[in-house]
């Protein structure tokens, strides 16, 4: 008996000693297993939302698919892991997912203290407040003493504290872990106010019993640059995710869409030639095929297409392009050139 105990202890000790930091080669790992494991929300229309057949759609989901298209030439080689706001970083740190694409705000702490890197911004957002019309409130400055429902583990709960503190107003925060619980509690009247990213308000509002009875107040109380996140210390993977997003934005700027990308092969524009993979070996430098950007655009579309399909004015969310328009169209969406 004693001997078995001893050998178990010894074996465990040795195996632990042998475990080092997980291999840095996420791209190799992903290629070997044949799919990208992507962390998304538990259901936020427009960003990452499963339909009744379990097909995920949304602007964040498109980014996951674009990465898969760049690697495998097949945008469907993605598996999704739904995560609450609170779980998301641990899931990425521990290697449970390869990529976190879940309306996540880029902040200093998250970028520097969590062992993570933000690979760009795919939606520029800001935090807002939603209230019942019947309250007769027209400005966030009238919210003194309000009860506020929100998600825990978010920048949202910090911003709301900052806002009320700096305006010397009182409030009560009711912070739930699951987004659907927030919606339900607000709908039941537990709170006067629902606060989150304004895009999130537009999406979650659709889940209320009577969406028309609620309004979003005009104030934007924070900057919420939402973007994809990877583990720190794996530059190749970081580059690939970063340039996947840049390729989508560049494609829009160059007028390359999923519909015309095949004809564009004939284009004389050198920038399009490089994007299409006709000239240069940008794909190889990223560790994937030179048709990487072609595959992204063909199968997922450019940034504008993804935006319009998921969150744009013609969708239930109906969000105008605003800040997310290209830099030369009045917005701040800007990608470094592929050259």
């Amino acid at each position: 008996m004693k001997r078995t105990l001893l050998s178990i202890a010894l074996g465990a000790a040795v195996s632990v000693a042998a475990v080092t930091a997980a291999s840095a080669g996420t791209l190799q790992d992903v290629k070997a297993k044949g799919f990208v494991q992507c962390g998304v929300s538990q259901g936020l229309p427009g960003f990452s939302n499963p339909d009744d057949k379990g097909n995920w759609t949304g602007i964040d989901v498109d980014l996951c698919r674009a990465v898969a298209a760049a690697i495998f030439g097949d945008a469907n080689k993605v598996k999704f892991t739904p995560l609450s706001a609170k779980e998301r970083f641990t899931a990425l740190q521990s290697g449970e997912i390869d990529l976190l694409s879940r309306n996540t705000t880029w902040t200093a702490t998250r970028d520097t203290a969590l062992g993570l890197n933000f690979a760009g911004v795919n939606y520029y957002d800001g935090q807002g407040f939603m209230v019942r019309k019947s309250l007769g409130v027209t400005s966030a400055m009238q919210l003194n003493g309000a009860a506020i429902c929100t998600n825990t583990g978010t920048t949202t709960e910090l911003n709301v504290a900052d806002f009320f503190r700096s305006h010397k107003m009182q409030y009560e925060v009711v912070a739930f872990e699951k987004a659907d619980e927030v919606v339900k509690a607000y709908d039941e009247g537990r709170c006067d106010v629902y606060t989150t990213d304004r895009s999130g308000l537009a999406a979650q509002r659709l889940k209320l019993k009577n969406p028309d009875e609620h309004i979003v107040l005009p104030e934007i109380i924070s900057k919420e640059p939402l973007g994809p996140v990877v583990r720190q210390g794996d530059d190749q993977w970081f580059d690939l995710v970063k340039w996947t997003l840049f390729a989508m934005v560049n494609a829009e700027e160059l007028g390359v869409t999923s519909k015309n990308v095949d004809e564009m092969k004939k284009s004389n524009n050198p920038a399009i030639k490089r994007l299409r993979g006709v000239e240069g070996n940008f794909g190889e430098n990223l560790g994937v095929s030179n048709a990487w950007a072609y595959n992204i655009i063909k199968q997922v579309g450019n940034y504008g297409e993804s935006y319009d399909r998921n969150v744009g004015p013609k969708t239930p969310l109906g969000l105008a392009r605003g800040l997310n328009a290209l830099w030369n169209k009045g917005g701040i969406m800007y990608a470094p050139p592929i050259r």
Partner: peptide, 23 residues
């Protein structure tokens, strides 16, 4: 309690965990 937003040890600790990343 975390499920219904009662701020117990796990709920508050979880928030801290998330904000600092020090799991």
């Amino acid at each position: 309690a975390v499920a219904i937003a009662y701020p117990d040890l796990v709920a508050v600790g979880g928030t801290i965990l998330n904000q600092t990343g020090q799991a």
